[in-house]
Amino acid sequence: MKNKYLFRGLLPIAALFHGAVSGQTLVHYWNFNNNASVAAITAPTSTLLNGSITATSTGTGNTDTYVDFANGTGQNFNIDNLNARNGDASGTHLRYNYPINGNVQFNLPTTGYNNVVVKFTTRRSGSGAGTQSWSYSLDGTTFVPYQTVTSQDANPQLITFDLSTISGVSNNPNFKLKVEFAAGAGGAVGNNRFDNFTVDATATGGVDTTPPTVTYLPANNVNNASTTVNPTITFNENVRLLDNSAITAANAQNLVELRLTNATGVLVPFTTTLSNNKITVIPTAGLLPNQAYYLALKPNMVEDTSDNAVNTTTSTIFTTAGTSISLDKTFVKVNENAGTLAFKINVNNPSNATVNLVVKPAPFSTANSSDFTL
Rank of each mutant, 00 (worst) to 15 (best):
N114L: 07
F194C: 10
T354F: 04
N262W: 12
N238H: 07
D200I: 00
Q152H: 10
S369H: 10
L217Y: 15
V179Y: 01
S245C: 09
T373L: 15
F17Y: 11
F194G: 03
T56I: 11
V104N: 01
G87M: 07
Q132F: 04
T264S: 15
N223P: 00
V38K: 13
D88H: 11
I53T: 01
V214R: 14
T354R: 04
G23W: 10
L267E: 13
V358M: 14
T271I: 06
V302N: 09
T284C: 01
T111D: 08
N346Q: 09
N192A: 06
V281C: 08
I282H: 13
V239F: 08
N192D: 12
L242Y: 00
F120I: 02
L258M: 10
T92A: 14
P218I: 13
D243W: 02
V281G: 08
T313M: 03
L274K: 05
D328C: 01
A321F: 06
T65I: 02
K360N: 10
R123Q: 13
S315R: 06
K119C: 04
S324D: 07
N290T: 08
S133T: 02
P109N: 04
Y294R: 06
D88T: 14
L295I: 15
L16Q: 10
N155Q: 12
A321P: 05
I159H: 02
N300K: 00
